[in-house]
């Protein structure tokens, strides 16, 4: 019979290989790296994996990731309760927070409209958004979806949907390179994009 890795090692390689962007070769490299790590470090790593899954949930209000309910931003009364910034993903919240330009609340759609990827409006956290707009005292909505075709479509869709509500609706300025992702835009550029947002 052909020689194979011990079962536990094979299992680890398989687990790594399931992660996005990791092929079988990289998975092997990572598994061998784990073998060389200190016992303590391995336990910390495994603990972090289990911990994150156990503790991180979706905020029932803004749909951002959180370890407390509701999330820290939703709880923070210092933030402008009348401003709501709509983003595609949790990473975008972090990117915008880094700019220190925005002091209101967020709503995380958890995706964007993209028929190619089988995602329509019904797959985004839009129902939750509409509930908030009814129940909270929001006066301005900032559409901060990505400046690419799908992000643009999502923003247009939402602005049309929210139009009858009589809110001030703005779109972040196109300082962010067209076709780019907010997550990767540098902080200065993103700052300018937020401060220069325009009504649509």
């Amino acid at each position: 019979m052909m020689y194979q890795y011990a079962e536990s090692l094979t299992r680890l390689i398989e687990q790594f290989a399931r992660l996005p962007g990791i092929g079988p070769k990289t998975a092997q490299r990572l598994a061998f790296y784990v073998l060389k790590m200190e016992q303590q470090q391995v336990e910390a790593f495994a603990g972090a994996l289990v911990d994150v899954k156990k503790k991180i949930t979706t905020c029932p209000v803004c749909c951002n990731l959180t370890d407390v309910t509701p999330c820290r931003i939703c709880q923070d009364e210092q933030r402008a309760q009348t401003q709501l910034c709509i983003v595609e993903d949790a990473q975008d919240v972090i990117a915008i927070e880094k700019t220190r330009e925005y002091k209101g609340l967020y709503h995380v759609l958890q995706g964007r409209i993209s028929p190619m990827d089988g995602k329509g409006p019904e797959d985004l956290k839009i129902k939750e958004l509409l509930v908030r707009l009814q129940q909270e005292q929001i006066k301005e909505v900032v559409l901060a979806t990505n400046p690419n075709i799908e992000g643009e479509t999502t923003a247009l869709y939402l602005s049309k949907l929210m139009k009858p509500l009589g809110l001030k609706i703005t779109r972040i300025a196109h300082g962010v390179p067209v076709g780019g992702d907010l997550e990767y835009a540098d902080t200065a550029t993103l700052s300018r994009a937020i401060s220069g947002r325009r009504e649509i």
Binding site: I113, S114, P115, P121, E122, I149, E152, L156, K160, L161
Partner: peptide, 27 residues
């Protein structure tokens, strides 16, 4: 065009997506 074609295929029998189609039509 590619996105719009995907949506049109997904729409067969789903009237609900007309509002989404309208947005893609604008683009």
């Amino acid at each position: 065009l590619n996105q719009r074609n995907h949506l049109l295929k997904r729409m067969i029998g789903r009237e609900k997506a007309l509002a989404e189609l309208e947005i893609w039509n604008m683009q």
